[in-house]
Amino acid sequence: MKKVGIVGHFGFGHKLLNGQTIKVKILSEEFQNELGSGNVMTVDTHGGAKRVPAMIGNTITMFRNCENCMVLPAYKGVLVFTPLFSLLNKFYHRKTYYIVVGGWLDSYLNKYKWLEKLLKNYTAICVETTTMKNALEKRGFKNIELVANCKELPELSVRNLQHSFIEPYALCTFSRIMKGKGIENLIYAIQKVNENAGQIVYTLDIYGEVWKDYISEFEELQKDFPEYIKYKGSVNYDKSVETLKNYFALVFPTLFYTEGIPGTIIDAYAAGLPVISSRWESYDDVIEDNITGIGYEFGNDEALIDILETVKCDPQKLIDMKENCLRKAKEFSPRAIVGGFIQKFF
């Protein structure tokens, strides 16, 4: 009998860099480190509807052979795997866990109210933020646990931090590229600040996988990029610290109000980068305001411009946050997160 089985979007054989895939791979690797690879079984949900029969068959096999069964589903996956887990557990009586990716589950239940009863059958629903924990507990859930997002990243030492910056200040983004992540809003804001100054105050390097439904729009957008804005392609998450460490700051202009703990912010902290971010719902769970980053009003482009103008006048304010970011990064280590999970539940 294996110790744990994990259902998630592994995308074996594909180079996928979205947050869901990265999280499930990191958790799987750390469970293998802690328990041994022979004690961990994985079920890949990559492939869409045509692979659903195989996914169901593999999940049944997992329940037969694993003491603990967990799932990291996306939006549609919740509708498939929550009923499936509930049904199978009537026969196999395993400990079951829903590891939530992002912060959308509470609002999702407004549409799929019938899911609530089934979700309460999990041994634990592990959410990333206190905002989401509180929201679900208001619905009557008694099985909510706080389990932060995590990443295994190289530790940058304080002596390797860059503390000296001059204009133009090099900004970056490091997440999935799509309209909803606010990339167009950020480009507008940087162009506006530079135009107002009559010189290049900020440059912007954009890293990340372009969302498939946004590829053509982004290609058109790139045609009008000024010289100080560049798309730098995708970078594997284990190369993030090396890629980001010399930047002035990372910007996270998300338009998704229900973000959980974005992996890109963990990347930034590990590289010693303060974060300039919109104040999404769980902002305070991730960013210590004026300590590891600076926030602006959610969805307000003018507020973003104001923040960039303020930082331009006092760049030392952000530079002084860099050591705080390295400290904060330690809170998101997989060893700490998975080790604590095993100690509590296994």
Rank of each mutant, 00 (worst) to 15 (best):
E137P: 13
G140E: 05
R176V: 15
I190N: 00
H163Q: 09
M132F: 01
E152W: 01
G180S: 05
I177C: 08
N134C: 09
K181C: 12
N121W: 04
S175E: 11
A148P: 06
F174M: 14
L186S: 08
N185H: 07
E155R: 06
P154H: 02
G140P: 12
Y188E: 10
L136M: 13
C172H: 03
N121S: 14
T129E: 05
T130E: 13
K142A: 10
A189W: 00
E145A: 13
L153K: 00
V147A: 03
A189C: 11
E145Q: 09
K138T: 15
E145V: 15
S164K: 11
T173D: 11
I177W: 08
T129Y: 01
I144F: 03
K179V: 14
F165H: 04
H163R: 12
E128L: 13
E145Y: 06
N149M: 13
I183T: 10
L171E: 10
I125M: 08
F165E: 03
G182T: 13
T173K: 07
L186G: 08
K138Y: 03
T129W: 00
N185M: 13
N160Q: 14
E167F: 03
C126V: 12
Y188C: 05
Y188N: 07
N143F: 01
L161A: 03
E137R: 05
V158F: 08
N149V: 15
G182Q: 07
I190C: 01
E167Y: 02
I125D: 01
I177F: 06
T131E: 14
R176Q: 11
A135Q: 08
S164G: 02
A189G: 06
K151R: 14
G182E: 08
